[in-house]
Design a protein around this nucleic acid. Sequence first.
RNA 1: GUGGACGUAGCUCAGUUGGUUAGAGCGCCAGGUUGUGGCCCUGGAGGCCGAGGGUUCGAAUCCCUUCGUUCACCCCA
Length: 428
Amino acid sequence: MNLTTAPRGTYDIMPQEALIWQWMEVNIREVLLAYGYGEIRTPIFEHTELFLRGIGETTDIVEKEMYTFLDKGGRSITLRPEGTAPVVRAYIQHKLHGQGGTTKLFYLGPMFRQERPQAGRFRQFHQFGVELLGEETPLADAEIILLAHDLYQHLGLTELEIYLNSVGCSECREEYKKALIASLQASSSQLCPSCLNRLERNPLRLLDCKNDSCQKVTAKTPSIHDFLCQACKEHFIQVTTLLDQANVKYEIKPRLVRGLDYYTRTVFEVVNTDLGAQNAICGGGRYDGLVKECGGPAVPGVGFASGMERLFTTLEQSGKLPVCSKAPQVYIISLTEELSNVGFKIATTLRRNGFKVELGFEVKSMKAQMKAANKSGAFICIIIGEDEWKERQVTIKNMNDGQQIRVDLPDIVDQISNLISPQGVINQ
RNA sequence: GUGGACGUAGCUCAGUUGGUUAGAGCGCCAGGUUGUGGCCCUGGAGGCCGAGGGUUCGAAUCCCUUCGUUCACCCCA
């Protein structure tokens, strides 16, 4: 074990980068709140059973990717691998269905899956997501997709693709599965081993296998759209109509199926095709059976989850990351040990007046301190030297043009205010 | 869990068919100014060449093991 390295698949967000994360979070919250969603903060771990029931026992997440352990009371605990199941649990626990109407929630935070890391995949990663509970109408599906669309738009991402499909309800999906299996069994000899396995367990997933031979086989299989029941068909058509009205471009992908068992009817992904193998930055859909499955009433739901690391990378690729600077406005240097007290006092005064101030702690040569001031990116440097201090003055230097003036101690705040406006957080 | 690629200074990387004290650029520190940054010049610090074992007179270089990183597969955001 190497104690000086973060555990596999985890990483530190350092101050400069954290500024960008804060920016992303602020913007995401802004849009979600504007759409009427309230933030919910659920625990980072839950009873393992919740995920077994919610996500589905035969999914890969549950079978091999969960961080599961026994606590000291012998309970099986799992670090949340996704956000929907915990939100649904909280929805049931707090009986939000009893308040009537719809419930609109969003979450944002770390998730955990014990997978082998690769580009765009970590063991601790971050997602935000929304859940709209209590609505069966296609308006809800459309609102969710539109929300995702507008959100990325708001962040400056205009080149993303939206893939859309319907996986039907429990009834018509069963019909389709039967037809699919029947069609595939005829040519099962040409399928890859993992697809042979999936043939029985989850034939839908076989549709997006990347293996050439499998693709040839599945290319000839029937489309789910030929099997959707009347209600599902109409639901899907209405969703697409609403998206058309809102001018949202999307691509219908009859073969888009998602890995989680709980989806019904609408499923969708938002994809950045420049991202490599892990190119989905958002995935979601309708889950009409999930609340009941988790022990609540039969309440329909629809939502999505978005991976923030992938969002970050996408923003970076598109040159949409903001320029975040942690540079101070004012850098203060003192030329002798005795004068560093004065510098400290001036720093405090300026900070309490709302200026972003950095104080050189070490009294070194003036040249060295000026270098530090320059490197900090400060707009103004305050120099406290013996000459000035004899007359209870300090030098204020504009680091851009090199101009400097001497000012009396009581006038510092006013003089600085003439040059810059407060940007710090402390305001009196 | 499986496979490929890669681990040399704080960072990005050189390092010839194995051959003395392991290099560059950037960054850092100091000096070129008695109290003035950016540009330039000079000097300096900083490496168990990921770790362990083996081959050899001699290993950063070859072999094995291990750890780590990374990309891909399975699967997924």
